[in-house]
Amino acid sequence: MNKKKTFGSLAAIRRDVRRDWQLYLLLLVPIIYIIIYKYLPMGGLVIAFKNYKVRQGIWGSKWVGFDQFTKFFESYQFKRVLVNTIVLSLYTLIVSFPFPVLFALMINSVRNERFKKVTQTIVNMPHFISVVVMVGIMFSIFNSATGLYGSVYRSLTGSNMAPDLFGSAASFRHFYVWSAVWQHFGWDSIIYTAALSSVDPSYHEAAQIDGATRFQRVIHVDLPTIVPTIITMLILRMGSVMTIGFEKVYLMQNSMNLSASEVISTYAYSVGLSAKGVGNFSYATAIGLFNNVINFTLVMIMNTISKKVSETSLW
């Protein structure tokens, strides 16, 4: 009672740490984990500024400054992988963003609870399919000779051979994006349906008394409620515009669609690791670092904008 130690004083810190020692002990495990597996590799990023040789190790290798980066910017691949990455992610964003919102608004208008539950269960299901299986499903169903697509095409046109869909650069993007929509629109709508369930029913009642139709209530009651959620999700997505997941692109890649499917992450992999033993680690690290710095900057910018515009921010 009489001890009036200020919050910041050394004695107060010591007292608090002694009080909470068990909590710090628990935290030790995750902190050690995060330092080893997340921060140590960040230290490894120095090889982006070096000419890394396995034998010389990270510290023994020669410094080369920004040479790896200039090499990337000047390579003929640079423009192609950059454009592919941006086009693929913007296409994904534009197509896959509105679906969950519209779906949530519509399913929210459905009054039959059983119908609602059954449809939601079904549309959420594909979210749990693994990337490998998802790509496998696409390849099997749209196979021009043996798949469902092949037989539909043959029976509709009467020809005996359907054109191959996976051998062209043009179709790669459509398959990549629309399969993602198919797989995730239901799951992505959950966050909006959750927000919609928090709408105060008295707003709806008041609007009904004023003679609003159900559709008008969607526009003037439902939609405004989920706008903050929409903005938050949009920021998250815009911030990750340059992050195209490696796995799916890599699995869908073949020599015929490479002109559209080589993105930054797959390119980094192909110069760094796929040529086993002779891979250029430094060059690949520089490419990855370039990508990650842009991602980081984008999230920061989008968050600042949203803080100003809507007072909604991620942190």
Binding site: P41, F281, T285, N295
Partner: peptide, 8 residues
């Protein structure tokens, strides 16, 4: 927000 990437 930030990760080292594949190679590191």
């Amino acid at each position: 927000l930030f990760s080292a990437g594949m190679i590191p």
